[in-house]
Design a binder for these strands. Structure first.
Lengths: 138, 138
DNA sequence: ATTGACTCCGTACATAAGTACGGAAGCTAT
DNA sequence: ATAGCTTCCGTACTTATGTACGGAGTCAAT
C-alpha cells in the first residue's frame, strides 16, 4: 500500500507509462529505489508533479524551464536569496507572457466585434496589435 | 524598391533565411511569385507576420494553431459566423492560459514571500497550486 | 503452475520545428 | 567581366519531446 506502480501513476496523471520513464531520464521526476524484489513504488505526489509538468508544457515552458520551476519549489529553505531571485525572474517572465496573451486576446476581440458590425478596413488586427518591438536596420 | 529580399525579411524579423523558407513550406507565409528574372520580392508586412509567429510560439502555440490564428485575421469579410466562432474559441483558450499563468505566478509569489519570512512548512507550493483537475480511478 | 497483465530496460522510431549544406544561378561593385 | 555576396532549391541533419517494441522478469488470480 505504500506507493503506486508506474502504471497507476501514469493513469492518474493522464499520461503513458513511457512518458513517466522519459521524465525520469530527463531528471524531472525521481525514480524510486527498486526494491530487492518486485516493482518500484512511487509516492502519490509524483502524480501532482507530472500534472504540473503537463500544465506548464501547455503554457509554453520547455522541459528545461519546467525543471527549473520544480527545483525552485523544492529547495526553499537554503540559499534563499538565490531562490528568491530566480523566482522573481520567473514571475517577470510570466508577466510578459500574460501581457502578450492579453494583447492577442484584445486583437481577437476586436476581430469578433468587426465581424458583427461589417466594419471592415483593418487588414490584419492580430498581427498589428501583437508586435511591438522596433525593427532593425536593413 | 517594391519589396524586400528574403534575406532582408529574415534580418528584420530576427530569424534566419531558412526559417522563412520553412514557414513558407508550412503555409504560414505566402511565397511571392518569382519574377521571370531575378529574386523574389516580399511585401513589408511579412516581417510583422513572422514576428507574430515567433511571439505566438513563445506563448506556447504550435505552428498549426498559429496558422489558424493567422487565417482568422485574414478572412474577416465572409463567413462571419464561422470566423466569429473560431475567434471566440481562441479567446476562451487564451483565457485558460492566462488563468493558469496567474496561478503559477501566485504560487511563485508565495514562494518568494515564504523565502523572506523563513515561514517553512509548504512543501511544494508551485505544484500544489497549479493542479486542479480531479484524479481518475485506479 | 499456468495464464494474463504489468514492470523493467534498452533501443528504435516518430513528430514538430527548425538548421545546415552544396551547387547553380543572379546581383552588385570594382 | 570578375569577385564576392545573395538567392534558390532539394536534401539531409539536429534538437526536443515523446512513443513503440521486444524480451525477460514479476505479480495476482485461477
Amino acid at each position: 500500500m505504500s506507493g503506486l506502480t508506474i502504471g497507476n501513476v501514469a493513469k492518474r496523471a493522464g499520461v503513458g507509462v513511457e512518458t513517466i520513464r522519459f521524465y525520469e531520464r530527463q531528471g524531472l521526476i525521481e525514480q524510486p529505489q527498486k526494491p530487492g524484489v518486485g516493482f518500484r513504488h512511487y509516492p502519490a505526489d509524483v502524480v501532482l508533479r507530472v500534472r504540473f509538468i503537463r500544465h506548464a508544457k501547455e503554457l509554453g515552458f520547455s522541459l528545461r524551464e519546467i525543471g527549473e520551476l520544480l527545483d525552485l519549489s523544492l529547495e526553499p529553505e537554503q540559499n534563499c536569496g538565490e531562490v528568491r531571485m530566480r523566482a522573481e525572474a520567473k514571475i517577470a517572465d510570466i508577466d510578459c507572457r500574460i501581457e502578450s496573451l492579453e494583447k492577442m486576446k484584445g486583437a481577437l476581440s476586436r476581430l469578433v466585434v468587426a465581424c458583427g458590425t461589417q466594419n471592415q478596413a483593418q487588414s490584419c488586427p492580430i498581427i498589428e496589435s501583437i508586435v511591438e518591438e522596433s525593427s532593425s536596420a536593413d
